[in-house]
């Protein structure tokens, strides 16, 4: 195997960027699932976030406003899901899938006329001389602010879930909604809040794709990233820091395989292309072997609807 032509500094720096969209979306979905809701509409919310963020950024000229617009649009779409599943008690799996299809169609409609336009650029945070330090300059101080924000959000979610009353309530609702209800917590409202948070995060991830990673709008731009995000939540066994590892691992292998190809590696392309997915499956198998659902750390009430009358 020839790693000669591949510069590890650049590789790490670019995998950090490649991982941001799936990391944000997976982090949001983690909170949603922690509260006991399975929202398979991540892909739909991401792409709505991508187009809404793009349109907002183009019209306001501000990438920050674009990210905000993407988050709001993702949250609005997730509100549809929350209303259907929490108040009309529809099946979560079917509703989530429908949300993805709806999001893809709606984004295509909303994106008419936005092909071939360039959004305002999101620049790297100016760290001045720090960015010139070898290795660390590029890896730690050479990114745009969303890369840092995504890592900060992982820390925030971790802290909230682990150390705050709110986190405890969310986990209680996800583990045993009957018990949480009898303690006086409004199960459906808490789940609604979590779902909206998940939608906003997915929208943010989508906006990152259309504003930074690819910088343009084309139909179907997220190309399945939402499904990868869903897999990463399971991969991470519902733990925030493992989401970060999972996203970096997936982003890293994707970037590495393209770099290997460009460097003229002798490994057949087919193996390189399938490697990110193969390794994800492999890790999932290893992690779930010999242990039950509890060992996987899945929320006990995941995917179950709740109504106070039961």
């Amino acid at each position: 195997m020839d790693f000669g032509a591949i510069n590890p500094t650049i590789l790490i720096a670019s995998l950090m960027v490649a991982a941001v969209p799936i990391m944000l979306a997976a982090l949001g979905e983690l909170v949603v699932e922690k509260s006991g809701v399975l929202n398979l509409g991540v892909e739909g919310m991401m792409i709505i976030g991508a187009i809404a963020g793009f349109v907002t950024a183009v019209h306001t000229g501000s990438p920050v406003a674009g990210f905000a617009g993407g988050a709001v649009a993702g949250a609005l779409l997730s509100l549809v899901f929350a209303f259907l599943t929490q108040f009309l008690l529809t099946n979560q799996v079917a509703t989530g899938l429908a949300l993805t299809l709806f999001g893809l169609g709606l984004s295509s409609l909303a994106g008419q006329g936005y092909n071939g336009i360039k959004p305002p650029a999101t620049h790297a945070v100016p760290f001045g001389p720090l960015a010139d330090i070898p290795f660390f300059g590029r890896v730690v101080f050479g990114h745009d602010w969303m890369v840092y924000a995504s890592i900060a959000l992982v820390a925030l979610v971790w802290w909230v879930l682990r150390a705050t009353r709110l986190g405890l309530v969310i986990r209680a609702v996800g583990e045993n909604h009957e018990a949480a209800h009898s303690l006086g917590y409004k199960v459906n409202r808490i789940r609604l809040g979590c779902t909206v948070f998940g939608g906003a995060m997915a929208g943010l991830g989508g906006a990152y794709v259309s504003l930074v990673r690819v910088p343009q709008w084309t139909d179907g731009i997220t190309a399945g990233a939402g499904w990868i995000a869903l897999a990463i939540v399971v991969f991470a066994s519902w733990k925030p820091w493992r989401v970060l590892i999972g996203a970096y691992l997936f982003g890293g292998i994707t970037v590495l395989q393209l770099n290997l190809q460009a460097a003229g590696s002798r490994i057949p392309v087919e193996y390189l292309s399938m490697s990110p997915y193969l390794i994800t499956i492999l890790v999932l198998v290893i992690m779930s072997s010999g242990r039950g659902r509890a060992g996987l750390n899945a929320p006990a009430a995941l995917g179950q609807n709740f109504h106070a009358s039961r």
């Binding site: 670019s14 794709v209 084309t218 731009i221 994707t254």
Partner: peptide, 16 residues
């Protein structure tokens, strides 16, 4: 057609 993947491929080439 996969904009993100195409962008990554171009990026990998440019980096090399």
């Amino acid at each position: 057609f996969d904009p993100a993947k195409e962008a990554d491929a171009a990026k990998a080439m440019i980096e090399q």
